[in-house]
Design a protein around this nucleic acid. Structure first.
Lengths: 189, 189
DNA sequence: CCGTCGGTATACCGATCGGTTTCCATGTCG
DNA sequence: CGACATGGAAACCGATCGGTATACCGACGG
């Protein structure tokens, strides 16, 4: 089927893009990208207007899985406090993998200094969604200022992501401890 | 004086390097770098073995001034708690400048995915020094676990740096509030 | 006065950049 | 069978990459 073939090519391209952009940075060339994806440059430029669009699409594709990886299932964890801490627990577990480079969306935002880059918009959106999830849990948990708590948790999350990704720090429970302190101070039981 | 002339060329090069690497990222080319510095490529490669060394040297040069910018003078601020909060206050003030891109050392570490890159070593060193300063103040302030508090403050500092630099967030007192909460929890009066 | 030294300018190296285009093999459909 | 769309391989575009080499300049020291 034509549709299936097209999608497969696109999928291979976006998968390779997600991996290479994450591992080697956004400066990776189109040549190398297409080579590892097994896709001709012609097909790439037929599917996307530019390398920037490929990057944006690869981030967009990655977003739902990333969120699912960090978020507990519906009946997996009970209280809002536990659901928030679950995110940090997962993040810490991810950070010990040998090729961990921090949150891919934050990395893209830092590397692309331009905040208007199409991929920057996608990345900021992903960040906003996580913050929204924190905020929703904070409200459920009766936080004094849910928005403030959500922003504080994002600070911790992204700080930990950058520092662990850059191999500045090993987070043995550091984010869990910090998030716990912030939850306590916000009155989330 | 020969020494003065040499230093001047080197200074021009490192100043331009610091600015361009920060503004445009580490991918900025040697050609553009030398052009804006008013230094020939030949001179550059006479002073440094490679572009990577130029980047490392420019970060090293920038470090003391950066630290001085964040740290209060000896009699400017009295208590350890105030001295710690002073850092975040300064950081928030810096973050509102139009061309702010976050902490240059953290940005370099994220962009250079390789933690063994000469510039990565310099950047990590700068980060370690700030953490050491936090730790020293935490001890003076009677923190229950000075090292833990210092690491938590670095999480907040770098998270805020990355997020404000990427234009995800405006920190109106967010880091001050978060640091205050952490100080309170650590027992630093 | 002459050599050397620090410096610039410039051209060059092979490689790669993002992106376009040409050619051709493989269809699939009428 | 013939017409046409698809897409892969690869050449090609001008520009730039990091790095080197050649040639020339002015100042300073013997």
């Amino acid at each position: 089927m034509t549709t299936t073939d097209k999608a497969s090519t696109k999928d291979r391209l976006l998968d390779a893009a997600a991996e290479l952009f994450y591992r080697d940075g956004v400066s990776i060339g189109v040549e190398a990208l297409c080579r590892t994806a097994g896709v001709s440059k012609r097909s790439m430029y037929q599917l996307f207007a530019s390398k920037d669009e490929v990057l944006a699409a690869s981030l967009e594709r990655r977003a739902p899985g990333y969120a699912a990886q960090l978020t507990p299932g519906p009946d997996e964890v009970r209280t809002p406090r536990e659901r928030i801490l679950y995110v940090f627990e997962k993040a810490e577990k991810m950070s010990v993998e040998p090729d961990y480079q921090g949150c891919p969306f934050l990395a893209a935002l830092v590397e692309l200094k331009n905040p208007e880059h199409p991929a920057s918009l996608v990345a900021r959106d992903a960040k906003e969604r996580l913050q929204g999830a924190f905020r929703a849990e904070a409200e459920l948990g009766g936080a004094r200022d849910p928005e403030l708590l959500a922003r504080q948790l994002m600070l911790v999350f992204d700080g930990a992501s950058a520092r662990a990704g850059a191999r500045i720090e090993k987070l043995d429970g550091l984010t869990m401890a910090t998030a716990t302190t912030l939850l306590d101070a916000a009155g989330v039981a």
